[in-house]
Amino acid sequence: MEEEISLREIIETMLDGKWIIAGVTAVAVAISAVFSFFVIDPTYKASSTMMVNHINQTETTFNEYLEGVMTPQVYVEKLKSPELLSRVIDKENLDPEVWTVSSLQQKLQIENKENTNLITISMEGKDPEQLASIINTVVAESKTLTAEQVHTQLQALMTEYEEKMTEEQKNLDAAIAEYNQLKADAGLPALILFQQTASGSQYIMEANQELLDELRNLDKEKQVQFEQINTKINKLTQLYNSYYTKYEEARSISSAELIQNKVETIAEAFPPQNPVGPNKMLNIAIAVVLGLMAGTGYVFLRSYWKNTEPVNEPSVGV
């Protein structure tokens, strides 16, 4: 019975204050609508999609290096790097007091979809034109920066291979001089065993039948000496030619073209036409709920206050 009476009192209290509840809700909805439609600036979102490809060229030492360091996961970190974002801020002439590397890192949303080589770059803001421009600059500058880094690596490799070629050239010249000395002592024919190719860099061995016949007539000790120096020269020649091949590979690669083939822009960012925020209907729905809660709370508080007013007791005369 007490529960029945309490429920009845609750309903009666709400009915008595229905206009207050409705009024508070209406005010909350009106405030939310004014802010959502007229006060809060609309928020836009622009995005771009990139794809990090596998290299479809003949496998080389440098291509294997690229496949290892140019994965989608690594490229995501490159897109967040301070070096790249600093270049974007300068390229876009952004206000350095408003746009810092840290703030740009926070605003850029970069996602690599799991088990794919796709990278999505998006950003939200008030200016749709600026959003699209910043994202496209991030994409373009990331390719430029990567190409520069690749070019630096190529130059370092070429320098390394040149040094190794120079070193092996000295070793090869010394081995050939040793052979020539052996040739003079043993009375070997004055034939050129090594000759530069048309490129002027690699070496090949010349051995005709006449030379082979004369070598067979040498005594065993001289033949052993010749075989030893011949083996040494062959190994040095192969080593030299190996460095030369790697040098030519590095020299023939265009870093810009390589990165263009490696990193492809699937969809450029365009200025968005429709805002993504504020969510006006959601804001109004929240305002309705809050208005009902606030109005109902006020009605019950008012009822409680009235029903618990202190009773003034009459004074007793003496």
Rank of each mutant, 00 (worst) to 15 (best):
Ser142Ala: 13
Thr152Tyr: 13
Ala207Trp: 14
Phe226Pro: 01
Glu210Ser: 11
Gln225Met: 09
Glu168Thr: 08
Lys222Pro: 09
Tyr244Glu: 04
Ala190Met: 07
Val224Glu: 11
Glu168Met: 07
Gly187Tyr: 04
Gln225Phe: 07
Gly187Thr: 04
Ser142Gln: 04
Ile229Phe: 08
Glu221Tyr: 13
Asp173Val: 09
Lys232Asp: 00
Ala198Trp: 11
Ala175Thr: 10
Glu167Arg: 07
Asp219Glu: 13
Ser201Thr: 02
Ser199Pro: 05
Gln223Gly: 07
Ala207Ser: 14
Ile229Arg: 01
Ala174Cys: 12
Thr231Glu: 14
Lys183Tyr: 05
Thr152Asn: 12
Leu215Tyr: 07
Leu172Ser: 05
Thr159Met: 08
Ala207His: 15
Glu160Asp: 12
Leu182Ile: 03
Asp185Asn: 14
Asn171Val: 10
Ala156Lys: 15
Thr146Asn: 04
Leu193His: 11
Gln209Pro: 10
Asn234Asp: 15
Gln223Asn: 05
Glu168Asn: 14
Gly200Asn: 08
Ala190Thr: 11
Ala175Pro: 08
Glu214Asp: 15
Asn230His: 14
Gly200Ile: 01
Val224Ala: 12
Tyr179Pro: 00
Met205Thr: 13
Lys164His: 11
Ser201Met: 09
Leu193Ala: 07
His151Met: 06
Thr146Cys: 02
Asp185Lys: 04
Tyr244Leu: 05
Asn217His: 11
Glu227Asp: 15
Met158Gly: 05
Glu141Met: 03
Tyr179Val: 00
Tyr243Glu: 02
Gln153Leu: 07
Leu193Gln: 04
Leu145Gly: 03
Ser201Lys: 14
Thr245Tyr: 02
Thr245Cys: 10
Asn234Thr: 06
Lys246Val: 00
Lys232Asn: 12
Leu154Ser: 02
Lys183Gly: 06
Gln153Pro: 03
Pro189Thr: 00
Leu212Lys: 13
Glu162Phe: 09
Met205Gly: 13
Lys222Thr: 10
Glu206His: 15
Gln181Cys: 13
Gln149Ile: 00
Val150Pro: 01
Gln153Trp: 05
Val150Asn: 02
Lys220His: 12
Ala140Met: 06
Glu162Val: 05
Ile229Glu: 01
Gln209Val: 07
Thr237Val: 12
Thr231Cys: 09
Asn180Met: 10
Gln169Ser: 08
Gln155His: 12
Thr231Pro: 09
Leu157Glu: 07
Ile233Lys: 00
Thr166Leu: 12
Asp173Leu: 06
Leu145Arg: 04
Glu210Gly: 08
Thr166Met: 10
Met205Asn: 12
His151Ile: 01
Asp173Tyr: 06
Thr231Trp: 01
Ala156His: 13
Glu168Ser: 10
Lys222Gly: 09
Lys183Met: 07
Thr152Lys: 09
Ala198Cys: 04
Leu145Cys: 02
Tyr203Val: 01
Gly187Lys: 06
Leu188Ala: 09
Ala174Arg: 00
Gln238Lys: 15
Leu191Trp: 03
Thr231Ser: 15
Leu193Thr: 05
Leu191Cys: 10
Ile229Tyr: 05
Ile176Leu: 05
Tyr240Asn: 01
Gln181Thr: 15
Ala184Lys: 11
Leu182Thr: 06
